[in-house]
Design a binder for these strands. Structure first.
Length: 281
DNA sequence: AACACCCGCAACCGCACTATA
DNA sequence: GTATAGTGCGGTTGCGGGTGT
């Protein structure tokens, strides 16, 4: 007997989520918490399957999500973790508060893989590639024909590709700046921030302080906006603070949310926050 | 301007794993 | 021990924007 599908797919909506659907899902979860994903679409009035709702919440709507480009430190950490753990994205994501496994997987497949190849490393084994990658400019320097040792050849190869990589990084940074500018233009568009209104109202009812605030971040292609909370910012930026202070900020936020939202019988906000593996000392 | 191609990312799919009856 | 439900996970797909011709 085979496994049954997670839901009846007949009549269910697929594809990109609309702002209205996001609102419904977010309002439902904020008011009721997460108990059973299969029931969520029915109770929230969505024509989606539970799996789809779960994915949307985890990868996009979750309050503690961190958006934006990966920093160099994060990329280095990602490469090291991948060398240790392989394609176990959820395990890797556990080391990046606010990042989802999907986001990390996509970043790996679209950026890091290329970066490693440019450095002459095999993305799956993390070991030096002994042959030139196809993308390598064979007319640049005839290193392979030289009489130097393999190690020297690898070093020479890396110097050449490092320059290329530096160039790429500079180009990327320029592009990033442009994207940020575009985003700030988008931010001024009222229609894009409807979804944030609910959170803002929620925030206004709480004395959360300046270290925690909702932000609109890089727009997604599917529906043109993205909502994110900078909860992680307060925790990450206050690394110099004593851990008790960090925990104090976090606990205040948790207490405030718990006092406003009815979590009875469902996951508490503590549980939801733990999706992001926030540091608790 | 129009078209083709490339790339990044959100979303989907199907299998695996765990809990429970 | 077995069947089933619920959820997690990793691979893959396809849309849409950007870029090149």
């Amino acid at each position: 007997m085979g496994r049954k599908p997670c839901c009846e797919k007949v009549g269910l909506k697929r594809g990109p989520w609309t702002i209205d659907e996001d609102n419904k899902l977010m309002n439902f979860i904020l008011n009721n918490g997460i108990h059973c994903w299969r029931l969520v679409p029915t109770l929230a009035g969505l024509m989606r399957c539970g799996k789809s709702c779960r994915l949307r919440w985890i990868n996009y709507l979750r309050p503690d999500l961190k958006r934006g480009a990966f920093s160099e430190v994060e990329e280095d950490q990602l490469i090291q973790l991948h060398a240790r753990l392989g394609n176990r994205w959820s395990r890797i994501a556990a080391h990046f508060p606010g990042r989802t496994d999907n986001e990390i997987k996509n970043h790996w497949n679209t950026r890091i893989k290329k970066k490693l190849k440019l450095l002459g490393l095999d993305p799956s084994t993390h070991k030096p590639i002994t042959q030139y990658p196809k993308s390598f400019d064979m007319e640049a320097e005839p290193i392979a024909e030289s009489s130097c040792s393999l190690r020297e050849q690898e070093n020479n190869f890396n110097v050449v590709t490092f320059d290329k990589q530096q160039q790429q990084i500079e180009e990327t940074l320029g592009l990033q700046k442009k994207q940020d500018q575009d985003f700030h233009e988008l931010h001024s568009n009222e229609s894009r921030v409807n979804l944030s209104h609910g959170y803002e109202v929620l925030w206004e009812t709480m004395d959360v302080g300046s270290e925690l605030y909702p932000t609109i971040t890089n727009p997604s292609k599917s529906n043109g906006y993205s909502l994110s909370f900078s909860l992680d910012v307060s925790l990450n930026q206050s690394m110099d603070e004593p851990s008790s202070l960090q925990e104090n900020s976090r606990q205040r936020w948790v207490d405030n949310v718990d006092s406003v939202l009815p979590w009875d019988g469902f996951l508490t906000i503590e549980d939801i926050l733990s999706f992001g593996k926030l540091p608790v000392n």
